[in-house]
Amino acid sequence: MAEALSARGISQRFGDRTVLDGVDLEVTPGRVVGLLGPNGAGKTTLMRILFGVVAPDAGTVAWGGRPASEDDRRSWGYMPQERGLYREMRVHDLLTWIARLHGLDRSTGAARSTDLLDRLGLGDRGGDKVQDLSGGMAQRVQLAAAMVHQPEVLVLDEPFAGLDPVAVRFLSEVVTDHVRAGRVLLFSSHQLELVEDLCESITLLHRGRVVLQGDLRRLKAESPDRYLRVDVDVADGWLAEGTGEVAARDASGSRIRLAPGVDAAGVLDVVRRQAPVTDFAVEAPSLAELFLDAAGEDADVLAEAEA
């Protein structure tokens, strides 16, 4: 079982702009931890501080209860938001070379490269040059490059950005396998709805500050808000004042934010008197809704968070 990675009181300014303001972060082994928030929230800066690329104005980074050293950081795996692969190299050769940079012998590095490419659905592309891969495939190779030495700590900056659903599934499975092995994993994302089912623990940043943090299930359970989802388009006049309001409408139906203490079954009966309902559920707030409540922002911020 790996040790925990933590940051305490991290603050960072660039000129007159405060990027991080007293941020705490705890990444424990065996849990999928998400560093979340809109673009510009400070996620990438915090990750660079974890790796020593940027020295913070204040705060400390610890690994296993002691200050993180350069040797510690060199052993970790990092997938940066700005992708960087040698485009002229063949995929398998590139991964084997990176493994050797981390101290593995050639045969072990080659075996791990083959295994990772198979797991990421690229087993037949090892002989291709990186420049001949699609964007999504190259992104999976970038992940393999961060994992080929089997690091105890794996940090992924926006790993799901721009990927199709198949690639997202592949990456999610690899993330889950890393955590199940008892290792440490932290990933950042601004796509709250996309990563909601993957996260177990979250640190949610907004404008450089932590606005929400902890076990996601607990945060949802502690929220006073509850929603009724129905597969019909609920008109504004259907609901009596004080019972609930339509929070969202889409192609699958409507999502009603229930007033505190209101019986969801009673609201459902009201809707069913107006239109036939074949699918419904009472739900806790989504991660995006928790963010809006914690940040105290309007729908424009939600649109930015989900962009």
Rank of each mutant, 00 (worst) to 15 (best):
A2D: 02
S6H: 01
S6T: 15
A7L: 00
A7V: 00
I10G: 05
S11D: 04
G15S: 03
R17Y: 11
G22K: 03
T28P: 03
G30L: 01
V32Y: 13
G34C: 11
P38K: 13
G52S: 02
V53K: 00
D57C: 08
G59I: 04
V61D: 05
G65Q: 11
A68S: 03
E70N: 14
E70I: 05
R74H: 10
Y86Q: 00
V91H: 15
H92E: 15
T96D: 09
I98R: 01
A99H: 03
R100K: 07
S107R: 15
A110I: 09
A111I: 11
S113K: 03
T114A: 07
T114N: 06
D118S: 00
G121R: 04
D124C: 01
G126Q: 07
G127E: 15
A138D: 13
A146T: 13
A146F: 12
H149N: 08
E152V: 07
L156E: 14
V166H: 13
V168Y: 01
S172E: 12
V179P: 03
L185K: 10
L185H: 12
F187G: 06
S189G: 09
S189L: 09
E193D: 15
E193Q: 12
E193P: 02
E193L: 14
T203G: 09
R209N: 08
R209S: 13
V211D: 08
G214A: 06
D215Y: 13
R217E: 15
R217C: 12
A221C: 04
A221F: 01
Y227N: 05
V232T: 13
D233Y: 07
D233C: 08
V234T: 05
A235F: 08
W238K: 07
I256P: 02
G261N: 09
V267C: 12
L268G: 11
V270S: 01
V270K: 03
Q274S: 14
A275L: 03
P276N: 11
T278E: 05
D279A: 09
E283H: 03
E283I: 06
P285M: 06
E289P: 07
L290R: 06
F291C: 08
D293R: 15
D293F: 04
A294Y: 12
D298W: 11
D298N: 14
D298R: 14
A303R: 07
